[in-house]
């Protein structure tokens, strides 16, 4: 990483921070999506026998 010069830590740090924040957001959005999908499927399954 010496190619990045004396400020390599700051450059990699800023990319790391971006990955951390955007990655965290992505993980949260995907987890939320999956949870709601499962919840909706469970609700539909419960409703199905009642409504013809």
């Amino acid at each position: 990483m010496s190619a990045l010069g004396q400020h390599a830590a700051f450059i990699l740090g800023s990319y790391g921070a971006a990955v951390l924040v955007i990655g965290g957001l992505t993980a949260w959005i995907l987890a939320d999506h999956r949870a709601r999908k499962a919840e909706l499927a469970a609700l539909d399954a419960r409703r199905a026998p009642e409504s013809p």
Binding site: R36, L40, L43
Partner: peptide, 15 residues
Amino acid sequence: MAMRTEVMRRRIRTL
């Protein structure tokens, strides 16, 4: 993706 989740959340609420 987040919009789809929100649409589902509202549908869950209504149901």
